[in-house]
Design a protein around this nucleic acid. Structure first.
Length: 204
DNA sequence: CCGGTGATGTTC
DNA sequence: AACATCACCGGG
């Protein structure tokens, strides 16, 4: 696996909204003990510090502390007791902002992704049901599962070093569509979600 | 649509 | 110490 990872200068060069757009088309990679998995980022959302939907809005606590770190820091949180979501910390140190990665187009380690996703299915019968490639990483909780990412192992680490990183984009051959964010109850009017137009791999 | 599931933040 | 909330997912 070629390591063309984005470095600190990339993460600190853009405001959060621009970073959310720039990350589209880049490849999220995890070199894990079980093998390497990767996928092209096809959907992101920006969370700004003056935005009520942002975890760091008017609060700096143990959970949100990674969001105040250096750009390129990894912020992972637990949601609904059973899923985790991964974010790229943005802006500058001391400002609590981040980009949520919401969907990937799988590239490397597709078998491994399927195994990891099936492990989380309840019954043996559910594990028999087909799991399409396009459904492996279509959603923030799913991609974290498929990529073998875990809060205890990766939260507050950095994408600029270590086994979890983001490769630079190899293609600009797609259009980015801007929409409202998904799954939130406040800040719903802000057009901070970015998806690859007509991609089969984005969430709904 | 609806419920599972547990950490986190807020209020008392 | 209790309570409400939650950047989700899968099964109807």
């Amino acid at each position: 696996m070629e390591d063309n990872r984005l470095d600190l200068s990339f993460y600190q060069s853009y405001d959060t909204i621009t970073l959310a757009q720039k990350l589209i088309g880049c490849e999220l990679v995890h070199d894990s003990p079980d093998g390497t998995t990767s996928g092209i980022i096809v959907e992101t959302e920006a969370y700004l510090c003056d935005d009520p939907a942002c975890h760091a809005f008017n609060r700096r606590t143990a959970r949100t502390e990674p969001m105040y770190g250096t750009p390129g820091t990894i912020y992972i949180y637990l949601i609904y007791g059973m899923y985790q979501c991964i974010n790229v910390v943005s802006n500058r140190e001391g400002v609590g902002e981040a980009v949520l990665i919401r969907a990937l187009q799988p590239v490397l380690g597709i078998n491994l992704m399927q195994q990891r996703r099936l492990l989380n299915r309840k019954s043996a019968i559910d594990q028999q049901k087909p799991l399409l490639v396009k459904d492996l990483c279509r959603g923030p909780g799913k991609l974290v599962q498929a990529m073998g990412i875990d809060r205890s192992a990766h939260n507050n680490h950095s994408f600029t070093k270590g086994p979890l990183y983001i490769n630079q984009s190899v293609s600009d051959d797609f259009q980015i569509e801007e929409t409202m964010r998904i799954g939130i109850n406040v800040g719903t009017a802000l057009p901070y979600r970015f998806v690859v137009k007509k991609s089969a791999y984005t969430s709904r």
